[in-house]
Amino acid sequence: MDKIKVNQMMFYGYHGLFSEENKLGQRFTVDVELMGDFRKAGQTDRMEDSIDYGQVYEVTKEIMEGKAYNLLESLAETIAQSMFDSFSLLETITIYIDKPGPPIPGYYQSVGVEVTRKRDDYEA
C-alpha cells in the first residue's frame, strides 16, 4: 500500500476538558498518513489520480480550528471520517494529534493520540 504523509501541521484550537483550555486555547500539531493505491498517479503524473496535500491540510484545519472538542480522540475520529468523505482513493488513515504542555499535574513535553482507521470501519 502506498502512503502520503503530511507532517507537523500546526493549528491553534480550544480543545480540552478544562475551562482555561476552552478560553485561552493552545497550539496543536497533527500528522496524517494516508494509505491507498497511488500507482496510477505515479504513471500519469495527474493530481486527479492522487490525494491533494493542500486539501488534506484544509480538511484538518477546518476541524482543528472549528468546534471545540473535549477529547483528542474525538478530534481524531472526526478528522478520519472527514478524510474518507473527502477522498475516494483513501483506504486507511493514521492520525496523530499532539498537544504540547497539557494543563495536567506533572511535567510533560506533550500528550497525544494516534488512531488508525480503514474505510471499511465506516461502511455498513
Rank of each mutant, 00 (worst) to 15 (best):
S19M: 10
Y12F: 15
I97G: 06
Q8K: 13
M64N: 02
K40H: 09
Q43A: 04
K99W: 05
D120S: 15
P102I: 14
Y107F: 08
D2P: 03
G66F: 09
V56A: 02
L90N: 07
E62G: 05
P103N: 10
E21R: 04
M9A: 12
Q55I: 14
F18I: 11
G112L: 12
R39K: 11
G101R: 13
N70R: 07
R27H: 08
S19P: 12
E62I: 01
G36L: 10
L89Y: 02
G36P: 06
V59T: 09
S50Q: 04
T60N: 07
G16H: 03
D37M: 03
P102R: 10
D45E: 13
S50E: 06
G66I: 01
Q55D: 10
Q81M: 08
I95Q: 06
S74I: 01
G13K: 11
K61P: 06
K99S: 01
E48W: 00
K99L: 08
A80K: 03
A68E: 06
Y107R: 06
I63Q: 12
V113I: 11
Y14I: 01
I93W: 02
Y57L: 14
T29R: 04
I51E: 12
V6P: 07
A80Q: 02
Y122K: 08
T60W: 06
L24E: 09
V32C: 11
I4G: 11
T92R: 12
V115W: 04
Q43K: 13
R27Y: 04
F38E: 02
T92S: 11
Y12K: 04
D2S: 15
K23I: 15
D52G: 02
L24Q: 09
Y96P: 00
L90D: 03
G112V: 06
V113P: 03
S82C: 10
M1G: 14
T78Y: 01
I93K: 08
S50V: 02
G13D: 07
I51W: 14
I4T: 11
V111F: 12
D31L: 05
T60R: 01
F28A: 07
E20A: 11
V113C: 15
V59L: 11
Y69A: 08
M10Y: 05
N70G: 04
E58N: 07
G101I: 07
F18T: 00
M47I: 07
M9W: 15
F38Y: 12
K23P: 00
L24T: 10
P100N: 01
E62T: 03
N7R: 15
V32L: 15
D45R: 01
E123K: 07
K67L: 00
A124D: 11
Q55R: 14
E65A: 06
Y57Q: 01
E65M: 03
Y122R: 11
Q26P: 06
L24M: 11
F38T: 04
S86V: 02
F18G: 03
D98I: 01
T29G: 05
I79T: 06
R39Q: 06
E114S: 14
E123W: 14
F84I: 10
S19N: 13
A80G: 05
E73H: 12
R119I: 11
S50R: 05
E33R: 13
G16Q: 06
P102D: 10
V59K: 13
D49G: 07
V32S: 00
F84C: 00
L75W: 12
A124V: 10
F28C: 03
G106D: 09
I4E: 01
L34D: 09
